[in-house]
């Protein structure tokens, strides 16, 4: 290999790190959105920290084991996991320019996400009816803030998904729409990662 070839090879491999020209838009867009997601993780870390330090401060009110229903938490977890899976398959079909399959997977993703929100909503409503609302104790304030913020993220994810479906129908799978879809699937998978933290810290450790 000549020196020029070696240089070319090394810069081609370092694409996006200064060598070999700018990275494709897809990579740059995903990077920018990834930075946003990491800032979202930092936001959640504050809520997780608040929950961790306040989870014992029940002020004589009900504690985690009395309130949490692990069976519905398991169903919620499975809803999110499978919706992540169908979201991934939807992104895959979009990448392969199969709008029909994308719409089917998007519908599954939406239904599973909505099922998660429905179960969470009924749990919240039951807790408030039992007098265990967010104003009862520091523990419950932290609980509703943390889990509710995750639920709000899922809600905005569902709105975004409906919007993406409308875009795919109206504009087709053109590169710009595909990049937005990429950001959406990153968002949806990131919510699943947050949920793993909620499940472990709040429900599994709290229900013992």
């Amino acid at each position: 290999m000549t020196v020029a070839t070696i240089e070319a090879v090394s810069t081609a491999l370092a694409r996006g790190r200064g060598g070999g020209g700018p990275a494709p838009t897809r990579i740059v867009v995903a990077y920018g959105f990834w930075i946003f997601l990491l800032s979202d993780f930092v936001l959640f870390s504050g809520l997780f920290a608040a929950y961790a330090v306040l989870s014992d401060q029940t002020a004589g009110g009900p504690s985690g084991p009395e309130l949490f229903n692990l069976r519905s938490v398991f169903i919620e977890t499975m809803c999110l996991l499978f919706s992540s899976y169908t979201c991934g398959l939807g992104a895959l079909s979009a990448e392969r320019r199969q709008p029909g399959r994308f719409l089917i997977f998007a519908a599954f993703t939406f239904v599973l996400g909505a099922a998660f929100l429905f179960i969470e909503g009924t749990e919240f409503a039951a807790m408030v009816r039992k007098g265990a609302g967010p104003s009862r104790s520091a523990f419950l304030s932290a609980f509703f803030t943390l889990v509710g913020t995750h639920g709000a993220h899922v809600t905005s994810g569902l709105i975004w998904l409906a919007y993406m479906v409308a875009q795919v129908v109206a504009k087709g799978l053109r590169p710009r729409v595909l990049r937005r879809l990429l950001c959406f699937s990153l968002f949806w998978h990131a919510l699943d990662i947050i949920w793993i933290g909620v499940l472990t810290l709040v429900y599994l450790m709290g229900a013992r």
């Binding site: 694409r15 790190r17 990579i27 990077y31 990834w34 990491l38 993780f41 930092v42």
Partner: peptide, 17 residues
């Protein structure tokens, strides 16, 4: 190589978290 920047950002995010 396309993921290097993502990994670096993730490790910084993990540090803050």
């Amino acid at each position: 190589p396309d993921n290097t920047n993502n990994i670096i950002a993730l490790s910084f995010g993990l540090l803050i978290v």
